[in-house]
Design a protein around this nucleic acid. Structure first.
Length: 357
RNA sequence: CCGAGAAUGACGGAGUGGUCAAACGUACCUGACUGUAAAUCAGGCAGCCUUAGGCUUACGGAGGUUCGAAUCCUUCUUCUCGGA
């Protein structure tokens, strides 16, 4: 088992690739690990095939940390998205849904998620969790937390049955409860009794207007992340799923979170939204003594800008191309532009994490 | 030279008498994006006025019919396709 030096940020390789990069790019950047998703890998490639191949890390050609997400979040997102099939439903038994690509009805259960992850053979596994829907009543949210615990227990049993006592793997459970302190506490306590290796912060309720920034400048979620972190003993590894902005990560590290993943640096890169050092961009964000700027490189302002994206950055993007050229590449949806921008943002995140120890 | 048809905003392309500053798409401008159904989504895109809204100029040029024209008529210009 690889022992990374916390805190770490893991980019998402949802479909088996950190979009528009190669694993060699990640190696150059110094990325300590990646997150990949059981649901998407299972649907797109098939975990039996990966097992036969020799595991997901061999398949990717990736030697660093690999964490698999259970697919819970994704399947709920899919089930509840607009225009989704009415055949999609989540019950205590598991998630039943139609795979749009193949038209086949599929079932994801706590047990099958563990089986898929076993086939993939990652370093860290995640139990299938039951996210809370934003428009749910209190009673419904309470029920979500209850099922979430039941699923975690079933997943743990499946895990022990599959791996035995000395797996060398880590298993994480996801603390749910949405924006409700009492439910979060209840969820944490129930999961702590089941004794997992990692405790994960389950993100925002799905499909709500609630954002990370609700209520105050710091946002409701800062208080919640601190609260939940304090419920978890320091002997456990703490993983804040889906977090997030560099300044938010800095806050989370302060309150005890150690592992992070988010789509933000990679997706934003493809949209020309770049994270740069202070003084290099247009919009400054800060947390305590740490700050950075934002550069929307697609803007007209950079049409004739010969400077690199960030003069203080040593990534492939900043050492080889101008803002003007990168702007052009992204504007025409050129994969090379997506790649350079993604490399830059991941480079930025990696250096940022190194400052947070 | 003769015959037939067509000219719409940056481009492609709807619209054939009022509900048209003109669908839709692209391009362009600005936002958003947080365990990725996300190369996606939202808004803007003639000018002016502080907004609901109002005013002005607009559908190749000029003129006409009509209360009212991108739409009908005349003519000019250009283009496309047939025939010499």
């Amino acid at each position: 088992m690889i022992k990374p030096k916390f805190p770490i940020f893991l980019p998402d390789a949802t479909y088996g690739s950190v979009k528009s990069t190669t694993f060699n790019d990640l190696k150059e950047i110094g990325t300590p690990g990646v997150v990949t998703t059981t649901l998407h890998i299972e649907n797109a490639i098939g975990s039996e095939y990966i097992k036969e191949f020799g595991g997901i890390k061999k398949f990717f050609g990736w030697e660093n940390l690999l964490l698999t997400d259970s697919g819970g979040w994704q399947v709920f997102s899919l089930i509840n998205s607009k225009g989704a099939s009415s055949k999609n439903k989540a019950t205590e038994a598991g998630c039943s849904f139609v795979d749009e690509k193949t038209g086949k009805q599929r079932l994801l259960t706590p047990e099958s998620s563990i089986q898929i992850q076993y086939n993939l053979d990652p370093d860290i596994l995640t139990v299938l969790d039951f996210p809370i829907l934003g428009n749910a009543t209190f009673a419904q949210r309470k029920e979500c937390v209850r099922i979430n615990t039941v699923w975690a227990k079933r997943a743990k049993t499946a895990y022990v049955n599959t791996y035995g006592d000395s797996s060398g793997k880590l298993l994480g459970a996801v603390i749910q409860g949405g924006n409700d302190f009492e439910l979060r506490k209840q969820s944490a306590q129930e999961l702590l009794e089941l004794d997992f290796d990692l405790y994960n912060f389950g993100g925002l309720p799905l499909h709500t207007p609630i954002t990370w920034k609700t209520k105050s400048e710091e946002g409701f979620y800062h208080e919640m992340l601190q609260y939940v972190s304090e419920l978890i003993p320091s002997s456990k590894t703490k993983y804040a799923m889906g977090v997030g902005q560099p300044t938010d990560i800095a806050f989370c590290v302060d309150v005890g979170w150690q592992i992070f993943d988010s789509v933000l640096p990679t997706r934003n890169a493809r949209h020309g939204y770049l994270y740069v050092s202070e003084g290099q961009g247009e919009e400054t964000k800060s947390y305590k003594n740490l700050s950075h700027d934002i550069l929307r490189v697609k803007k007209e302002d950079y049409k004739f800008d010969e400077k690199p994206v960030d003069a203080n950055c040593k990534c492939e993007c900043c050492t080889t191309v101008s803002r003007a050229y990168l702007r052009h590449l992204i504007r025409i949806n050129e994969p090379a532009g997506f790649r350079l921008a993604t490399i830059h943002n991941l480079w930025f995140y990696q250096r940022w994490m190194e400052k947070l120890n």
